[in-house]
Amino acid sequence: MLGAWEYLVKHPEKLAGWALEHLWIILVAITIAIILGVIVGIYITGRGKEHMADTVLYLAEIMMTVPSLALFGLLMLLLTSVGLKAIGFLPAVIALIIYGQLPILRNTYMAIRGVDPAMIEAGKGMGMTERQLLVKVKLPLAVPVIMAGLRNAIVIIIGIAAIAALIGAGGLGAPIFRGLRNARMDLIILGGVSVSILALLVDAFMNQVERWVTPEGLKRR
Protein backbone atom coordinates (compact mmCIF):
# COMPACT_ATOMS: atom_id res chain seq x y z
CA MET A 1 0.00 0.00 0.00
CA LEU A 2 2.78 2.32 1.02
CA GLY A 3 4.77 1.44 -2.08
CA ALA A 4 1.86 2.33 -4.28
CA TRP A 5 1.52 5.68 -2.56
CA GLU A 6 5.21 6.44 -2.99
CA TYR A 7 5.00 5.54 -6.67
CA LEU A 8 2.01 7.81 -7.08
CA VAL A 9 3.77 10.72 -5.41
CA LYS A 10 6.86 10.18 -7.52
CA HIS A 11 5.12 9.66 -10.87
CA PRO A 12 1.68 11.27 -10.76
CA GLU A 13 1.93 11.98 -14.48
CA LYS A 14 2.10 8.25 -15.25
CA LEU A 15 -1.11 7.48 -13.40
CA ALA A 16 -2.78 10.44 -15.06
CA GLY A 17 -1.61 9.13 -18.42
CA TRP A 18 -3.04 5.67 -17.81
CA ALA A 19 -6.29 7.10 -16.49
CA LEU A 20 -6.71 9.37 -19.48
CA GLU A 21 -5.98 6.52 -21.84
CA HIS A 22 -8.57 4.45 -20.06
CA LEU A 23 -11.18 7.19 -20.14
CA TRP A 24 -10.51 7.98 -23.78
CA ILE A 25 -10.96 4.40 -24.90
CA ILE A 26 -14.21 3.92 -22.98
CA LEU A 27 -15.50 7.29 -24.16
CA VAL A 28 -14.98 6.41 -27.81
CA ALA A 29 -16.43 2.96 -27.31
CA ILE A 30 -19.49 4.00 -25.33
CA THR A 31 -20.38 6.79 -27.74
CA ILE A 32 -20.51 4.38 -30.63
CA ALA A 33 -22.15 1.71 -28.46
CA ILE A 34 -25.00 4.05 -27.45
CA ILE A 35 -25.76 4.96 -31.05
CA LEU A 36 -25.59 1.37 -32.20
CA GLY A 37 -27.45 -0.06 -29.22
CA VAL A 38 -30.31 2.42 -29.33
CA ILE A 39 -30.71 2.16 -33.11
CA VAL A 40 -30.70 -1.63 -33.13
CA GLY A 41 -32.88 -1.70 -30.02
CA ILE A 42 -35.48 0.55 -31.61
CA TYR A 43 -35.24 -1.21 -34.96
CA ILE A 44 -36.13 -4.61 -33.55
CA THR A 45 -39.20 -3.26 -31.76
CA GLY A 46 -40.77 -2.74 -35.18
CA ARG A 47 -43.88 -4.63 -36.19
CA GLY A 48 -43.25 -8.07 -37.67
CA LYS A 49 -39.71 -8.21 -36.27
CA GLU A 50 -40.55 -10.31 -33.23
CA HIS A 51 -38.47 -13.26 -34.42
CA MET A 52 -35.55 -11.06 -35.24
CA ALA A 53 -35.81 -9.37 -31.86
CA ASP A 54 -35.81 -12.72 -30.12
CA THR A 55 -32.71 -13.81 -32.04
CA VAL A 56 -30.83 -10.56 -31.44
CA LEU A 57 -31.66 -10.46 -27.73
CA TYR A 58 -30.71 -14.08 -27.23
CA LEU A 59 -27.42 -13.56 -29.07
CA ALA A 60 -26.77 -10.51 -26.92
CA GLU A 61 -27.48 -12.53 -23.80
CA ILE A 62 -25.07 -15.29 -24.84
CA MET A 63 -22.44 -12.81 -25.96
CA MET A 64 -22.41 -11.39 -22.44
CA THR A 65 -21.27 -14.79 -21.19
CA VAL A 66 -18.37 -15.03 -23.65
CA PRO A 67 -15.16 -14.06 -21.85
CA SER A 68 -13.55 -10.94 -23.23
CA LEU A 69 -10.26 -12.70 -24.00
CA ALA A 70 -12.07 -14.91 -26.51
CA LEU A 71 -13.39 -11.87 -28.30
CA PHE A 72 -9.97 -10.22 -28.26
CA GLY A 73 -8.45 -13.31 -29.82
CA LEU A 74 -11.12 -13.49 -32.49
CA LEU A 75 -10.78 -9.79 -33.32
CA MET A 76 -7.01 -10.04 -33.56
CA LEU A 77 -7.40 -12.92 -35.97
CA LEU A 78 -9.97 -11.10 -38.11
CA LEU A 79 -8.04 -7.82 -38.17
CA THR A 80 -4.83 -9.55 -39.16
CA SER A 81 -6.55 -11.39 -41.98
CA VAL A 82 -7.84 -8.11 -43.45
CA GLY A 83 -4.45 -6.49 -42.98
CA LEU A 84 -5.29 -4.10 -40.13
CA LYS A 85 -3.38 -3.49 -36.93
CA ALA A 86 -4.27 -6.42 -34.71
CA ILE A 87 -3.16 -5.06 -31.35
CA GLY A 88 -3.73 -1.86 -29.39
CA PHE A 89 -6.55 0.63 -29.64
CA LEU A 90 -8.53 -0.77 -32.58
CA PRO A 91 -9.34 -4.32 -31.38
CA ALA A 92 -9.89 -2.99 -27.87
CA VAL A 93 -12.40 -0.36 -28.99
CA ILE A 94 -14.25 -2.81 -31.21
CA ALA A 95 -14.55 -5.32 -28.35
CA LEU A 96 -15.75 -2.61 -25.97
CA ILE A 97 -18.33 -1.45 -28.48
CA ILE A 98 -19.64 -4.97 -28.84
CA TYR A 99 -19.90 -5.58 -25.09
CA GLY A 100 -21.09 -2.06 -24.33
CA GLN A 101 -24.01 -2.06 -26.70
CA LEU A 102 -25.54 -5.27 -25.38
CA PRO A 103 -27.09 -3.85 -22.17
CA ILE A 104 -28.10 -0.69 -24.02
CA LEU A 105 -29.75 -2.63 -26.81
CA ARG A 106 -31.56 -4.91 -24.40
CA ASN A 107 -32.83 -2.08 -22.21
CA THR A 108 -33.88 0.04 -25.17
CA TYR A 109 -35.91 -2.84 -26.53
CA MET A 110 -37.46 -3.70 -23.15
CA ALA A 111 -38.28 -0.09 -22.38
CA ILE A 112 -39.96 0.62 -25.69
CA ARG A 113 -41.88 -2.63 -25.67
CA GLY A 114 -42.80 -1.95 -22.08
CA VAL A 115 -44.54 1.37 -22.75
CA ASP A 116 -48.13 1.13 -21.57
CA PRO A 117 -50.29 0.31 -24.62
CA ALA A 118 -52.86 2.79 -23.32
CA MET A 119 -50.37 5.62 -23.84
CA ILE A 120 -49.63 4.50 -27.36
CA GLU A 121 -53.36 4.27 -28.00
CA ALA A 122 -53.77 7.78 -26.62
CA GLY A 123 -50.97 9.05 -28.83
CA LYS A 124 -52.50 7.45 -31.90
CA GLY A 125 -55.87 8.82 -30.90
CA MET A 126 -54.41 12.31 -30.99
CA GLY A 127 -53.24 11.70 -34.53
CA MET A 128 -49.53 11.07 -33.99
CA THR A 129 -47.62 9.32 -36.73
CA GLU A 130 -45.44 6.30 -35.94
CA ARG A 131 -42.39 8.55 -35.89
CA GLN A 132 -44.02 11.13 -33.62
CA LEU A 133 -45.15 8.35 -31.32
CA LEU A 134 -41.58 7.13 -31.07
CA VAL A 135 -40.03 10.53 -30.49
CA LYS A 136 -42.70 12.11 -28.30
CA VAL A 137 -44.07 9.19 -26.33
CA LYS A 138 -42.02 6.02 -26.42
CA LEU A 139 -38.48 7.41 -26.22
CA PRO A 140 -39.05 9.88 -23.36
CA LEU A 141 -40.73 7.14 -21.35
CA ALA A 142 -37.92 4.74 -22.17
CA VAL A 143 -35.09 7.11 -21.30
CA PRO A 144 -34.68 6.10 -17.66
CA VAL A 145 -34.48 2.43 -18.59
CA ILE A 146 -32.05 3.11 -21.43
CA MET A 147 -29.94 5.15 -19.02
CA ALA A 148 -29.86 2.25 -16.58
CA GLY A 149 -28.59 0.10 -19.44
CA LEU A 150 -25.98 2.72 -20.28
CA ARG A 151 -24.78 2.82 -16.68
CA ASN A 152 -24.55 -0.94 -16.64
CA ALA A 153 -22.66 -0.87 -19.96
CA ILE A 154 -20.11 1.68 -18.76
CA VAL A 155 -19.32 -0.28 -15.61
CA ILE A 156 -18.82 -3.41 -17.72
CA ILE A 157 -16.54 -1.81 -20.26
CA ILE A 158 -14.39 -0.06 -17.69
CA GLY A 159 -13.58 -3.54 -16.43
CA ILE A 160 -13.00 -4.97 -19.90
CA ALA A 161 -10.90 -1.98 -20.90
CA ALA A 162 -8.58 -2.86 -18.02
CA ILE A 163 -8.17 -6.34 -19.50
CA ALA A 164 -7.60 -4.79 -22.93
CA ALA A 165 -4.23 -3.59 -21.67
CA LEU A 166 -3.17 -7.18 -22.34
CA ILE A 167 -3.48 -6.58 -26.06
CA GLY A 168 -1.61 -3.32 -25.86
CA ALA A 169 -4.46 -0.86 -25.44
CA GLY A 170 -2.90 0.83 -22.42
CA GLY A 171 -5.03 2.32 -19.69
CA LEU A 172 -5.17 1.45 -16.01
CA GLY A 173 -4.78 -2.24 -16.78
CA ALA A 174 -1.22 -1.56 -17.93
CA PRO A 175 0.32 -1.07 -14.46
CA ILE A 176 -1.62 -4.09 -13.17
CA PHE A 177 -0.21 -6.42 -15.80
CA ARG A 178 3.24 -4.95 -15.56
CA GLY A 179 3.08 -5.42 -11.80
CA LEU A 180 1.86 -8.99 -12.10
CA ARG A 181 4.62 -9.93 -14.52
CA ASN A 182 7.40 -8.38 -12.49
CA ALA A 183 5.92 -9.01 -9.03
CA ARG A 184 5.77 -5.23 -8.49
CA MET A 185 3.13 -5.06 -5.77
CA ASP A 186 3.09 -1.26 -5.78
CA LEU A 187 2.05 -1.20 -9.43
CA ILE A 188 -0.61 -3.88 -8.90
CA ILE A 189 -2.15 -1.95 -6.02
CA LEU A 190 -1.94 1.37 -7.81
CA GLY A 191 -3.61 0.01 -10.93
CA GLY A 192 -6.18 -2.13 -9.10
CA VAL A 193 -7.24 0.59 -6.70
CA SER A 194 -7.39 3.36 -9.27
CA VAL A 195 -9.42 1.34 -11.78
CA SER A 196 -11.84 0.44 -8.97
CA ILE A 197 -12.15 4.07 -7.92
CA LEU A 198 -12.70 5.07 -11.53
CA ALA A 199 -15.50 2.50 -11.88
CA LEU A 200 -17.18 3.57 -8.64
CA LEU A 201 -16.94 7.28 -9.52
CA VAL A 202 -18.32 6.81 -13.00
CA ASP A 203 -21.09 4.60 -11.61
CA ALA A 204 -22.05 7.25 -9.04
CA PHE A 205 -21.94 9.92 -11.72
CA MET A 206 -24.15 7.90 -14.04
CA ASN A 207 -26.57 7.32 -11.18
CA GLN A 208 -26.86 11.09 -10.89
CA VAL A 209 -27.26 11.50 -14.66
CA GLU A 210 -29.98 8.87 -14.59
CA ARG A 211 -31.89 11.05 -12.14
CA TRP A 212 -31.41 14.19 -14.18
CA VAL A 213 -32.72 12.71 -17.38
CA THR A 214 -35.75 11.00 -15.85
CA PRO A 215 -38.82 13.07 -16.72
CA GLU A 216 -40.22 14.71 -13.58
CA GLY A 217 -43.49 12.86 -13.87
CA LEU A 218 -41.83 9.47 -13.76
CA LYS A 219 -39.83 10.08 -10.61
CA ARG A 220 -42.49 9.41 -8.04
CA ARG A 221 -43.61 5.88 -8.50
Partner: peptide, 26 residues
Protein backbone atom coordinates in the same frame (compact mmCIF):
# COMPACT_ATOMS: atom_id res chain seq x y z
CA UNK B 1 -3.16 -21.34 -22.83
CA UNK B 2 -4.94 -18.06 -23.49
CA UNK B 3 -2.35 -15.97 -21.72
CA UNK B 4 0.49 -17.74 -23.47
CA UNK B 5 -1.17 -16.59 -26.66
CA UNK B 6 -1.66 -13.09 -25.33
CA UNK B 7 1.91 -12.65 -24.22
CA UNK B 8 3.24 -14.00 -27.51
CA UNK B 9 0.66 -11.99 -29.50
CA UNK B 10 -0.55 -15.16 -31.20
CA UNK B 11 -4.31 -14.84 -31.80
CA UNK B 12 -4.62 -18.50 -32.74
CA UNK B 13 -3.15 -19.60 -29.44
CA UNK B 14 -5.38 -17.12 -27.58
CA UNK B 15 -8.35 -18.76 -29.21
CA UNK B 16 -7.10 -22.23 -28.41
CA UNK B 17 -7.67 -21.32 -24.77
CA UNK B 18 -10.43 -18.75 -25.02
CA UNK B 19 -12.77 -20.58 -27.40
CA UNK B 20 -13.11 -23.64 -25.14
CA UNK B 21 -13.56 -21.27 -22.20
CA UNK B 22 -16.42 -19.53 -23.96
CA UNK B 23 -17.92 -22.90 -24.88
CA UNK B 24 -17.63 -23.96 -21.27
CA UNK B 25 -19.34 -20.79 -20.03
CA UNK B 26 -22.19 -21.15 -22.51
Amino acid sequence: ITLTGVFSMQPLTILQGAAPTAALAI
